[in-house]
Design a protein around this nucleic acid. Structure first.
Lengths: 337, 337
DNA sequence: CTGTTAGCGCTTTCAC
DNA sequence: GTGAAAGCGCTAACAG
């Protein structure tokens, strides 16, 4: 039962060659080996069911074939879609993924980064809190390729993959006013220096100011985890102002949208009759809820792919200046507005 | 910039001790070291920002601190919830998780298994296709602890964590008939030897036979990916029989439910007026769709926790007979029936 | 073409 | 208490 792992030595013995030759074989230097030895090595490997140890290889060549994927919350469908994209190209190149959640906690993020580092990850795709730039720099200096997804960090010269948050936010806010809404409120998770949130808020503010002169843009920073507070915020928005003109909510991400809709549902508010709503991230159930939720679909899967491809390029030696790749989000009109 | 990684040797040099002593320190054998050396080592580690290499440690002690999580599809919310559970206890014990998707393909599963094996995973939590028992046995013989989640495999004596599929399926099917439905159709992904699907189908069949004498239970095996075929199946079910009595659909998992509801929505069928529906897995949006979807909530998060705890126990040396831990799913009544 | 040798970063006897 | 030495499984010169 305890076969333990078969090593290169046993293969070498079985095949009657030295382990260097087996090593050559493993590494594809087949035409530097005599055909007969190739055969016997191949046979030995099959007979013994041998698989080279990543750990040993890695220790030697400093390549773990591991990619870290550090997200705020894997529960967010956005993250899962991204992960899938990352995975696609990882598979293609023989990399494996280590997934970690930070729950948006800088401390946890720090811890995870150290852990990933101990595993000698070669690449890191991260949705950072922005509070651990020092650790990130450490990683860089140890030759791990990093790409930021979704969130950029001011002052960190790193590859990044983002969406055109400003443009698309303007677009939807304009659309909301065009639809006749007089009061558009933005609900967002705490901005805390997180770039997409800030970009969206800033684009929202700009348009809201422009389209609704005299009315102060209403931004509600809420904690998705705190249902009661969220309910409170929603109620407060609905009760706000002079009560003239229709109101609509713009939700900053899919998870938050879910919670907001949930609140509306509990309050018995009809969409879009009582209140319009639109938000970021498109999940498959958006079209099933009530009249269908109008939304901004982010190319999350694509973002994952692109991010990982960037890492591959870096790993292959590309050392051009860090670039941020901006992908286009798409406005999907349904009937919640 | 290229600081490269600092090693135990540098720490030893900096602290003026041998690397053995540093090693002892790392491994917590502190009271076997003189206090002054402890101090200087500690200082050196901090100064140098040293982190021991998992790879080197692992190679030496045959412990990678890596757990494999192999699921059919991480896109399924069930999998994500489970992953979160697994992660919780992993964090607690210093393990990291390697996540892989098999897409229910035995070949891909096999490949992933080999990859994980090359990384010397210590534990494996798997949602298996059931077609790679040989590889699983290999892993076992190499001392990796395996626990099956959700899906059991006949003939494989392994720890498993499942839900009480039969009981809860009976319960809901009874409930459906009690509610006055005369025709209950089960929609499931291909059973193909996958235990929960079979258990549910068998429980369904039993109750359907019992409650609706004379009518043959209707099981539709469909591919979630094939929208057209699914639509066809739904239509066929709705058109079936003598058209007397209300019809209801029982969907075998969350992803499938989403697709089915989507079909119903496109067909303009009202829930529950035109057709009742209920299914497995509870996702947060279930309650927001139409009248709210009646469902069977599986304790997926808990399943992940329990599975990983089992692995920890095994890793700690527990070698009692494999056990299957059955957790209770819960019927959540809403208004889709 | 192929084997010998050294060593990746760490742990672990085994003496002192 | 502590260091020297050997070795985990593998790769990479370096000879031959």
């Amino acid at each position: 039962m305890k076969d333990k792992k078969v090593t290169i030595n046993e293969v070498a013995a079985h095949a009657g060659v030295s382990k260097s030759t087996v090593s050559r074989y493993i590494n594809g230097k087949i035409d530097a080996i005599s055909p007969k030895k190739v055969k016997s090595i191949k046979k030995a490997i099959e007979a013994l069911n041998y698989r080279p140890s990543q750990m040993a290889q890695g220790l030697k060549v400093k390549k773990s074939k591991l990619i870290g994927f550090l997200v705020a919350d894997i529960t967010n469908p956005f993250s899962v879609a991204t992960l899938r994209g990352v995975e696609e190209v990882c598979d293609q190149y023989g990399y494996s993924i280590m997934v970690c959640n930070t729950d948006n906690s800088p401390e946890k993020e720090r811890e995870m980064l150290h852990k990933l580092n101990a595993h000698y990850i070669e690449g890191l795709i991260i949705n950072t809190t922005g509070q651990n730039n020092d650790v990130l720099m450490d990683l860089i200096s140890q030759d791990v390729s990093i790409v930021l997804v979704d969130r950029k960090v001011p002052g960190l010269k790193l590859d990044a993959v983002t969406t055109n948050n400003r443009e698309v936010t303007s677009q939807i806010v304009h659309y909301m006013y065009d639809k006749g809404y007089r009061h558009v409120g933005l609900f967002t998770e705490p901005m805390a220096g997180i770039s997409p949130r800030e970009e969206r808020a800033s684009a929202y503010t700009e348009i809201a100011l422009e389209r609704n002169a005299g009315r102060i843009p209403q931004i509600y920073e809420v904690d998705v985890k705190d249902k009661a507070a969220l309910m409170q915020a929603v109620k407060s928005f609905l009760a706000s102002g002079d009560d003239q003109g229709k109101k609509a909510i713009l939700g900053n991400n899919g998870l938050l949208m879910l919670k907001i809709i949930s609140c509306l549902y509990e309050m018995g508010a009809a969409i879009p009759e009582d209140v319009g709503i639109a938000g970021f991230d498109d999940t498959e159930w958006y079209k099933l809820i009530g009249p269908g939720i109008t939304t901004i679909a982010q190319p999350s899967h694509e973002m994952g792919r692109v991010a990982m491809e960037r890492i591959i390029k870096r790993l292959e030696g590309d050392d051009s200046a860090p670039q941020t790749i901006q992908l286009e989000a798409e406005l999907i009109l349904r009937s919640s507005l």
